[in-house]
Simulated scan of single mutants.
Amino acid sequence: MLALKAKVAEYVGKEPECVTMYCGADAAIQTICETFLNHDDELLVCSPTYMLYYKLPFRFGAKLAEAHSSDGVSTNLDALYNAITDKTKLVFICNPNSPTGTLVDNRKLDEFVEKLPPHVICVIDEAYYDWITEENYESALRFVNDRNNVIVLRTFSKIYGMAGLRVGYSVANKDITACLGCI
Protein backbone atom coordinates (compact mmCIF):
# COMPACT_ATOMS: atom_id res chain seq x y z
CA MET A 1 0.00 0.00 0.00
CA LEU A 2 2.87 2.41 0.74
CA ALA A 3 4.30 1.82 -2.73
CA LEU A 4 0.90 2.64 -4.25
CA LYS A 5 0.67 5.76 -2.10
CA ALA A 6 4.10 6.89 -3.34
CA LYS A 7 3.03 6.31 -6.96
CA VAL A 8 -0.22 8.24 -6.44
CA ALA A 9 1.72 11.09 -4.82
CA GLU A 10 4.03 11.16 -7.84
CA TYR A 11 1.00 11.04 -10.18
CA VAL A 12 -0.57 14.12 -8.55
CA GLY A 13 2.73 15.93 -7.96
CA LYS A 14 2.51 16.04 -4.16
CA GLU A 15 4.48 14.55 -1.28
CA PRO A 16 3.37 11.11 -0.03
CA GLU A 17 2.55 12.71 3.35
CA CYS A 18 -0.24 14.63 1.59
CA VAL A 19 -1.94 11.51 0.19
CA THR A 20 -4.31 9.13 1.96
CA MET A 21 -5.44 5.88 0.33
CA TYR A 22 -8.91 4.33 0.71
CA CYS A 23 -11.00 1.45 -0.57
CA GLY A 24 -12.76 3.76 -3.03
CA ALA A 25 -13.78 7.41 -2.83
CA ASP A 26 -16.92 6.55 -0.83
CA ALA A 27 -14.68 5.24 1.96
CA ALA A 28 -12.77 8.53 1.81
CA ILE A 29 -16.00 10.52 2.14
CA GLN A 30 -17.07 8.41 5.11
CA THR A 31 -13.67 8.70 6.82
CA ILE A 32 -13.65 12.48 6.39
CA CYS A 33 -17.13 12.75 7.92
CA GLU A 34 -16.19 10.42 10.76
CA THR A 35 -13.02 12.41 11.45
CA PHE A 36 -14.39 15.93 11.37
CA LEU A 37 -18.12 15.83 12.18
CA ASN A 38 -19.36 15.96 15.74
CA HIS A 39 -22.85 16.06 17.22
CA ASP A 40 -24.79 19.12 15.95
CA ASP A 41 -22.15 20.08 13.35
CA GLU A 42 -23.28 20.72 9.80
CA LEU A 43 -22.25 19.22 6.49
CA LEU A 44 -23.14 21.67 3.71
CA VAL A 45 -23.84 20.81 0.07
CA CYS A 46 -25.31 22.57 -2.95
CA SER A 47 -28.19 20.49 -4.29
CA PRO A 48 -28.36 18.56 -6.49
CA THR A 49 -25.17 16.60 -5.92
CA TYR A 50 -23.78 13.16 -5.09
CA MET A 51 -26.25 11.22 -2.93
CA LEU A 52 -23.77 9.88 -0.36
CA TYR A 53 -23.20 13.40 0.98
CA TYR A 54 -26.86 13.54 2.04
CA LYS A 55 -26.72 10.32 4.07
CA LEU A 56 -23.53 10.50 6.09
CA PRO A 57 -23.92 13.43 8.51
CA PHE A 58 -26.72 11.68 10.39
CA ARG A 59 -24.49 8.73 11.23
CA PHE A 60 -22.37 11.07 13.34
CA GLY A 61 -25.14 13.10 14.95
CA ALA A 62 -24.52 15.97 12.55
CA LYS A 63 -27.00 17.76 10.34
CA LEU A 64 -27.23 18.24 6.60
CA ALA A 65 -27.48 21.84 5.37
CA GLU A 66 -28.32 22.59 1.76
CA ALA A 67 -27.86 25.50 -0.56
CA HIS A 68 -29.65 25.24 -3.87
CA SER A 69 -28.62 25.64 -7.44
CA SER A 70 -30.21 28.59 -9.20
CA ASP A 71 -30.55 26.64 -12.45
CA GLY A 72 -31.20 23.16 -11.04
CA VAL A 73 -27.91 21.66 -12.22
CA SER A 74 -24.92 23.88 -11.32
CA THR A 75 -23.12 24.36 -8.01
CA ASN A 76 -24.02 27.83 -6.74
CA LEU A 77 -20.93 28.89 -4.76
CA ASP A 78 -22.51 32.18 -3.64
CA ALA A 79 -25.50 30.35 -2.15
CA LEU A 80 -23.16 27.79 -0.63
CA TYR A 81 -21.02 30.48 1.00
CA ASN A 82 -24.09 32.32 2.30
CA ALA A 83 -25.33 29.08 3.92
CA ILE A 84 -22.18 28.65 6.05
CA THR A 85 -22.86 29.02 9.78
CA ASP A 86 -20.84 28.66 12.96
CA LYS A 87 -21.91 24.99 12.97
CA THR A 88 -20.68 24.25 9.44
CA LYS A 89 -17.67 21.93 9.60
CA LEU A 90 -17.59 20.40 6.12
CA VAL A 91 -18.57 21.72 2.70
CA PHE A 92 -18.66 19.16 -0.11
CA ILE A 93 -18.27 20.35 -3.69
CA CYS A 94 -18.42 17.74 -6.42
CA ASN A 95 -16.50 19.06 -9.42
CA PRO A 96 -17.51 18.00 -11.96
CA ASN A 97 -20.81 17.61 -10.22
CA SER A 98 -22.45 14.22 -10.00
CA PRO A 99 -25.07 13.63 -11.32
CA THR A 100 -25.28 16.80 -13.46
CA GLY A 101 -21.74 16.92 -14.93
CA THR A 102 -21.45 20.69 -14.51
CA LEU A 103 -18.12 22.34 -13.67
CA VAL A 104 -17.43 25.08 -11.15
CA ASP A 105 -15.77 28.20 -12.57
CA ASN A 106 -12.07 28.29 -11.54
CA ARG A 107 -12.11 31.94 -10.49
CA LYS A 108 -15.28 31.52 -8.42
CA LEU A 109 -13.83 28.45 -6.70
CA ASP A 110 -10.64 30.41 -5.92
CA GLU A 111 -12.74 33.18 -4.34
CA PHE A 112 -14.87 30.69 -2.41
CA VAL A 113 -11.88 28.85 -0.94
CA GLU A 114 -10.08 32.11 -0.15
CA LYS A 115 -12.92 33.48 1.96
CA LEU A 116 -13.81 30.25 3.79
CA PRO A 117 -13.90 30.67 7.57
CA PRO A 118 -11.05 28.76 9.28
CA HIS A 119 -13.47 26.35 11.03
CA VAL A 120 -14.74 25.01 7.68
CA ILE A 121 -13.05 22.25 5.68
CA CYS A 122 -13.88 22.23 1.98
CA VAL A 123 -13.88 18.79 0.37
CA ILE A 124 -13.63 19.00 -3.41
CA ASP A 125 -14.61 15.69 -4.95
CA GLU A 126 -12.92 15.21 -8.33
CA ALA A 127 -14.06 11.63 -8.91
CA TYR A 128 -14.69 12.42 -12.58
CA TYR A 129 -11.52 14.48 -13.02
CA ASP A 130 -10.12 12.14 -15.67
CA TRP A 131 -13.17 12.66 -17.90
CA ILE A 132 -12.92 16.47 -18.10
CA THR A 133 -12.23 17.82 -21.56
CA GLU A 134 -12.68 21.53 -20.75
CA GLU A 135 -9.35 23.23 -21.57
CA ASN A 136 -9.64 25.87 -18.83
CA TYR A 137 -10.44 23.46 -16.00
CA GLU A 138 -7.98 23.60 -13.08
CA SER A 139 -7.81 20.87 -10.49
CA ALA A 140 -8.37 21.84 -6.86
CA LEU A 141 -4.98 20.28 -6.13
CA ARG A 142 -3.71 23.85 -6.55
CA PHE A 143 -5.05 24.63 -3.05
CA VAL A 144 -3.33 21.81 -1.18
CA ASN A 145 0.05 23.43 -0.60
CA ASP A 146 -1.29 26.73 0.73
CA ARG A 147 -4.56 25.84 2.46
CA ASN A 148 -5.06 23.85 5.64
CA ASN A 149 -8.80 23.47 5.05
CA VAL A 150 -9.07 21.85 1.61
CA ILE A 151 -9.24 18.12 0.84
CA VAL A 152 -9.31 16.90 -2.77
CA LEU A 153 -10.83 13.48 -3.48
CA ARG A 154 -10.13 11.30 -6.46
CA THR A 155 -10.65 7.70 -7.47
CA PHE A 156 -9.36 5.22 -10.00
CA SER A 157 -12.78 3.53 -10.02
CA LYS A 158 -14.02 5.75 -12.86
CA ILE A 159 -11.05 5.35 -15.19
CA TYR A 160 -8.36 2.85 -16.22
CA GLY A 161 -10.78 -0.10 -15.97
CA MET A 162 -10.15 -0.34 -12.22
CA ALA A 163 -13.70 -0.10 -10.84
CA GLY A 164 -13.48 -3.50 -9.15
CA LEU A 165 -10.30 -2.59 -7.30
CA ARG A 166 -11.94 0.27 -5.32
CA VAL A 167 -8.92 2.59 -5.14
CA GLY A 168 -9.72 6.08 -3.90
CA TYR A 169 -7.47 8.72 -2.42
CA SER A 170 -7.46 12.15 -0.87
CA VAL A 171 -4.85 14.85 -1.18
CA ALA A 172 -4.58 17.50 1.52
CA ASN A 173 -2.26 19.49 3.71
CA LYS A 174 -0.04 17.22 5.85
CA ASP A 175 -1.87 18.24 9.04
CA ILE A 176 -5.26 17.24 7.65
CA THR A 177 -3.84 14.02 6.26
CA ALA A 178 -2.42 13.16 9.70
CA CYS A 179 -5.90 13.61 11.23
CA LEU A 180 -7.40 11.10 8.81
CA GLY A 181 -5.24 8.34 10.33
CA CYS A 182 -5.16 6.16 7.23
CA ILE A 183 -2.36 4.94 5.02
Rank of each mutant, 00 (worst) to 15 (best):
E66P: 02
D105R: 11
T35G: 08
K108Y: 13
N149A: 09
A83Q: 06
E126Y: 05
G72I: 10
A172M: 14
L37P: 01
P57E: 06
N82H: 13
V45W: 02
N149M: 07
L37F: 07
G161W: 03
L56S: 01
T177N: 07
V152L: 11
D78S: 14
V120F: 12
K158G: 08
K174C: 04
A27S: 15
P117H: 10
A79S: 03
L56Y: 03
T85P: 10
D146F: 10
G72Y: 14
I121V: 12
E15K: 12
E134F: 14
E34G: 02
V113D: 04
I124M: 04
T133L: 09
S69M: 12
I124Q: 02
H119R: 12
E138W: 07
A163V: 15
N145I: 14
Y169N: 01
L180E: 05
F36H: 05
H39T: 05
V12E: 11
A178R: 12
E114V: 02
V12C: 11
C94D: 15
H68L: 05
R59I: 02
A62V: 02
L4T: 06
S69Y: 15
G181N: 13
A67R: 01
R59E: 13
V104K: 05
S47N: 08
F92W: 05
Y160F: 12
N97F: 10
D40C: 08
Y22N: 00
Y22M: 00
V120N: 13
E111S: 06
T133F: 12
V45Y: 00
T100F: 12
F60E: 02
Y50I: 06
F143R: 01
A28K: 00
G164R: 10
N95Q: 09
S98A: 10
V150T: 13
V150W: 13
P96I: 06
C46L: 00
D110F: 06
Y81R: 05
K7I: 01
D41I: 14
L77D: 01
D26R: 13
L52Q: 11
T88W: 04
S47Q: 03
A79E: 00
L43R: 01
G161C: 10
C23H: 14
T100E: 08
G181V: 03
C182V: 02
I132G: 00
N38T: 04
I151D: 01
P118E: 13
I32W: 08
A163Y: 15
D110R: 07
N145L: 09
V150P: 08
D105F: 11
R147H: 14
V167P: 00
G101A: 12
I151K: 03
A163R: 13
E42K: 06
E111K: 06
E138D: 07
N148I: 04
L141A: 05
L44Y: 03
E66Q: 09
A172G: 08
F143C: 04
A79V: 01
C179K: 15
G168D: 00
E15Q: 10
K87N: 15
C94W: 14
L109V: 13
Y129F: 11
I93A: 05
I121Q: 05
I29T: 12
H68T: 08
Y137T: 00
E114L: 03
